[in-house]
Design a protein around this nucleic acid. Structure first.
Lengths: 131, 131
DNA sequence: TATATTGTGCTAGAAGAGTAGCACAATTAA
DNA sequence: TTAATTGTGCTACTCTTCTAGCACAATATA
């Protein structure tokens, strides 16, 4: 897997790393148990401080996406394989809707807001109308 | 319109204000031309610095959602009425999908990432395969 | 016109996020 | 066992973001 950092986007490096690894996992490009680059190796390759890579790996570890083994290295978590299938299904569900929203003239920001509103609304429904 | 601030959410006050005003506009609760609270009035009501309200109003002005008139006050922009209809339609489109995603077991964060991935993918398609 | 009310603009301080630096501990492999 | 490699943990610096403070300019209204 190849990592590409945008230094001008303003998005923190550790977040960019997390996104790319998660995306790799959710598309199947990274498979469960597969070895990830060493913290120092990746830091050297991307010309950032090892701690920046650590932060990305660590947070992904908390999500169960990455498995860190001291003295050994970083690996893709075992629990991701079924998640990959679910996410692929979800992507097929969402893709056309996004395209339709674009056709309606919504900008990316408007789409994001719309999602946030719907997420909040759904949560309200869950709280006020428990099945 | 009533504004509610969460001081513990960590979300900046000016962003919370922007979200609520936009949401009001997109749901039709705030109509084009309607007068919004004065900067100082709203600041006093929410117990924040007027500049915090200014920031929210100003950014919304740049988006065309708010119309600021010196010496007069703040008003809902004229361009929002047609937007409201489009957004309502979009919401009807998105709502069921969000619910389906939740049924699939996706968390809010996973849904947000999925959207981001699809937005990025759609953008790539637009660039590489222009109609 | 006069006065109050409104938005405008600039400066600064406080807090938080992000990254870097460096030493330590566990594992691996020879 | 020993040396190299790996993740771990702590501290500190820097930069950005967010909010506050205060004076100014334009408008409304009597």
């Amino acid at each position: 897997m190849i990592f590409r950092l945008s230094h001008s986007s303003g998005i923190p490096v550790y977040l960019q790393l997390m996104q790319q690894i998660r995306h790799g996992v959710e598309t199947g490009a990274l498979r469960a148990g597969e070895k990830l680059p060493t913290i120092r190796k990746l830091a050297e390759e991307l010309v950032v401080n090892p701690n920046t890579v650590v932060r990305a790996y660590r947070e992904l570890q908390h999500e169960g996406v990455v498995d860190l083994r001291q003295g050994s290295g970083a690996y893709v978590g075992q629990s991701v394989s079924e998640r990959t299938r679910v996410m692929a299904k979800a992507a097929r569900l969402v893709g056309p809707v996004i395209q339709r929203l674009r056709e309606l003239g919504l900008t990316e920001e408007e789409i994001r807001r719309l999602i946030e509103n719907e997420l909040a609304a759904a949560q309200r429904d869950q709280q006020t109308e428990p099945a």
